[in-house]
Write a protein that binds this DNA or RNA. Structure first.
Lengths: 357, 357
DNA sequence: TTGTAAGCGTTATCAA
DNA sequence: TTGATAACGCTTACAA
């Protein structure tokens, strides 16, 4: 299996482990009748220093042989790759896929290839992934969604990323904070605070909050932000219900609230939209009509928020922007900047203006 | 910048184009006091033929230097990579991200890395992507979502993929058909036909169909499938409204139907859920109450289908399964099999049983 | 069981 | 402007 004399057309449906064999620069050079160095220059290097005729020859040969440069070979020869590695918790989750979309777009514009790995919510897996990723020698590593605090692997992860950066790699974190890397965050606290004020302005005074475990930073920030927005309004302290960060969590919390008696609660803030949507369903089933008997607000402004009945008041977060900014940050010279993205309150029918008492 | 004498800690925040420098096998070997070949064997090769003591030595050295094998170097030395390249139209679209999720999971289980590229709906871009991808020499290329027919680039794409396969690569297409590659499809026709029959069984007789341009294969298949399910029932031919494949498209078609007078239509089939959801909104706004005045059904069974009011009748498609099966197919020895995945009718409140006349 | 050395497909340096 | 040739980081005969 050394060199080959012809354009390389194997015949049988090769086994799944067989190597993918393709035309090499060597083949192109031979076909064009020039040296391999010239071929390299004409194709991927400084075509300036190659006679026009040879450039044409080489290009033609490449086209004829359907040549594509072997990226791995280029990577090791050049000592650097053109890839950015993206770690997400779950591709199927719109939260992450929106971010991924932004990252991919910005990367493509910069001529970079993105490889994606899914951490699946496990910090161990996440660590393992970052390790493997380093084997790719990507220019950039973007980690998003690891927002669970207090795990031991956390420190190891930071260690690993620091080393990668010391080695010349770029690290950007999305929706983390207080870590010594470039960071893009969404203003969960500010958004929640603004929501609280908007709700006050609409006449609501007595609240309940559906939140997740406080180790989930996002949930905690939104919860605390909401409280801070209420600060100074003289309203009673909101009831707090801890539950899952999911639709079912919201559903379950709403049931609990109803069982307890929801009469004294004017509005519920669920720390994300899917929870809010679950709550909507539970309230409706219990005969408590959302938007009339009780206000409901969420966070994220997912697409369906507008199609649920009543349309859901929420806080829009610029997820794609977060991805775009992460790439921008990675390509900038500031390795440790913090880019906060504003969240935007969007009032809808689920929290109508309350009539003056 | 040749060799280095110490564990490699550069200092300054390197420029975004600087190479990522990391410990090499050479460093590990030196640290462990063995030859580079032994180090290679101990770490990534047949550790069996290495004295246990040396294995330990090498492992320790690797850990100390935080060594990760350079994947590109391995790729070119071994002549094959462990990556699968996935082409999607849009990561942010739940349709594709669900598929991506399945692909990623199966790939991870098989020890493969997935790199993702986004074609953005442009056939030219798609072709370009497949070209670049070939440079990665992936073991597998999975293309999903290019379902627009009749473009000239289409043939070129097939050509390109054929060549890749001839070179030993695996190709799997998702939701395409009649192409000489491994293929995973979702049974759009069958699902729509089953939906039609289910609706007949619930007493509906007069239908309208909201569909997209017939060049969009998915739309056409669902439309035709629906008609075939009606076949022989003696019902009048459904009205057909061509519109966008989006929420706004569904909204707009519903408005048109209402303006025309919807009195003689008992149920609407929108060829996907977001269209159906848009239609729901338009009907409600026009005072035509979905689920009472008119039945509405969609396709895809997206998550929010159950939270919309009334809950939407739909056809569930196993998107994650499609991704998983695509990987399975790619790893199997059958390079050209066709795996059809069944779609499942899910009846909900948007199409209640009609009272007997 | 180990080490030497010849690749793998590129790029980059250096003469010519 | 070109062509030899030495890297790049790794794997893998082949010998020892």
């Amino acid at each position: 299996m050394t060199a080959m004399e012809e354009p390389p057309p194997p015949t049988t449906p090769a086994s799944p482990t067989a190597p993918v064999v393709a035309a090499t620069l060597h083949d192109v050079a031979r076909e064009a009748g020039v040296s391999i160095a010239t071929a390299s220059r004409a194709l991927n290097g400084s075509a300036r220093n190659v006679r026009a005729e040879n450039v044409a020859r080489v290009r033609a040969a490449a086209a004829k042989l359907d040549y594509e440069p072997h990226l791995s070979a280029q990577a090791i020869a050049k000592g650097s790759t053109r890839t950015v590695a993206l770690v997400v918790r779950d591709v199927a989750d719109p939260y992450f896929s929106s971010i991924a979309s932004g990252v991919t777009q910005a990367a493509t514009e910069a001529g970079l290839i993105v490889t994606m790995a899914v951490a699946d919510g496990s910090p161990e897996r996440e660590l393992e992934i970052v390790r493997t990723l380093r084997g790719q020698r990507p220019r950039i590593i973007i980690v998003t969604g690891s927002r669970i605090e207090g795990t031991a692997t956390r420190d190891t992860l930071i260690e690993e990323l620091s080393q990668y950066r010391t080695a010349g790699g770029r690290v950007v974190l999305i929706s983390q904070r207080d870590l010594p890397f470039g960071t893009v965050t969404i203003d969960d606290r500010g958004g929640s605070a603004a929501l609280a004020r908007a709700l006050l302005a609409r006449g609501y005074r007595r609240f309940a909050v559906f939140h997740a475990a406080p180790s989930l930073r996002t949930s905690r920030d939104r919860h605390e932000g909401f409280l801070s927005g209420l600060y100074g309004s003289g309203t009673p302290a909101p009831l707090a219900f801890e539950t899952g960060f999911t639709r079912d969590g919201g559903y379950e919390a709403a049931r609990r609230l109803v069982e307890r008696g929801a009469g004294d609660v004017e509005a519920v803030f669920a720390v994300n939209d899917v929870m809010a949507v679950g709550a909507l369903a539970a309230f409706r089933e219990a005969g408590v009509l959302p938007g009339r008997d009780i206000g409901v607000a969420g966070f994220d402004d997912i697409g369906p928020a507008v199609d649920v009945v009543p349309a859901l008041t929420s806080v829009a977060v610029p997820l794609r922007e977060a991805g775009l900014n992460a790439m921008r940050l990675a390509l900038s010279d500031d390795t440790t900047a913090h880019v906060p993205l504003p969240a935007q309150v969007t009032l809808r029918a689920s929290t109508p203006q309350k009539p003056a008492p």
